[in-house]
Write a protein that binds this DNA or RNA. Structure first.
Lengths: 189, 189
DNA sequence: GCCTCATAGTCAAATTGTTGAATAATCAGA
DNA sequence: TCTGATTATTCAACAATTTGACTATGAGGC
């Protein structure tokens, strides 16, 4: 049950509604954890039942009311317990890599296209992380912020996401180029 | 059902038993897909039932008999169909990143230790990928191999794994160092 | 007025993945 | 000869994730 901890970690940095969390998990936290909206709502319900978060109704005009959640002391304790337990190895599952692994026996064209799409979405994420990091840093340069700033956790995970997307983008582009090159030379041979 | 395609892709490069696949999925293919042994045996049974692979019994002396599997024409066709379908975005789930995200409210010591452990396992994987790539390349240098070699799919995914582990290692080490530094300066302040 | 998009959330079913426990054979070393 | 590691596989229970459908309200564009 680790989605639980991802949600608790996200709630450390403020109050969020289920809907807002879906946005965060869609892109920001998606860096290290993805979850579908249905999962988040269900998990928030369970967390509230276990008194690890508390919800309160926010009445809005002009749009539907929402429930926002805050982490409780018990929730923080649970997060601390989790942090001292040994970390599971990173779980990674990638369709596209499976296709590249098999590319010798496939038509390379669709794989090349998908590599380029992946590179493009990586570029979008890169820009997002850069912007987020600028916002988190405020006026400080990165070095000073990391040494003296408050709240570096989210910054550090953004850095990890940034590096990941950067290397993803490079690998996708060079791999796509290479497969194109080979497809051309095969035709001419 | 994507484990299915990962298994088919792995079987492109030869005959494997369930047990051998668990080894591959433990480290080599784990690069882009992880699966528990139980999952693999179950999936192989289903694949055989669907005629996407064929199994045959291999009688061994000195150790238990085994069943080895080969991809069929139908299996290859299924893999080709899969390759042209749009790729799902990479799924990534990382406990350790969740902990780092929350580190401002946690005791940093255990997180630092876990970062260093992760860096060490990344170093092991790096060595493994380097060795695998050397084996795949044979006598050729990387450039020539990639341009002219046969069977570059597994090499390309090894490259991806190599890059991933390299950046993981760097991030873990610099992050651990930084958290150590901050822990020290906090104490002295 | 109608269509679509964004906000805000829920329900159920089906599929996948994880955990724990078993079985069974052989080999290497104390 | 006992112990533990490696090879080889299976079963069952449980937890987590994915997919698809569904209900609302309000805003903006045509």
């Amino acid at each position: 049950m680790a989605l639980r901890h991802a949600v608790l970690a996200a709630l450390l940095h403020g109050e969020y509604s289920g809907y807002q969390l879906t946005k965060v998990f869609d892109v920001g936290v998606a860096n290290f954890w993805y979850a579908a909206p249905q999962q988040l709502y269900a998990e928030l319900t369970r967390l509230e039942h276990d008194d690890l978060v508390t919800g309160r109704e926010v009445v809005q005009q002009n749009r539907p009311n929402k429930r926002v959640f805050t982490i409780t002391d018990d929730g923080l304790a649970e997060l601390r317990r989790f942090a001292t337990a040994p970390a599971k190895p990173l779980a990674l599952r990638d369709d596209l890599a499976v296709k590249v692994h098999a590319v010798d026996r496939l038509d390379p064209e669709p794989v090349i296209e998908q590599l380029e799409e992946r590179a493009a979405t990586a570029a979008v994420k890169l820009a997002f992380y850069e912007r987020t990091m600028r916002d988190l840093r405020g006026d400080l340069d990165e070095r000073s912020f990391l040494r003296q700033g408050r709240g570096i956790g989210p910054y550090l995970t953004c850095q990890a996401g940034h590096r990941l997307e950067q290397q993803t983008r490079e690998w996708c582009l060079t791999t796509a180029d290479l497969l194109r090159l080979r497809a051309r030379t095969e035709k001419t041979v």
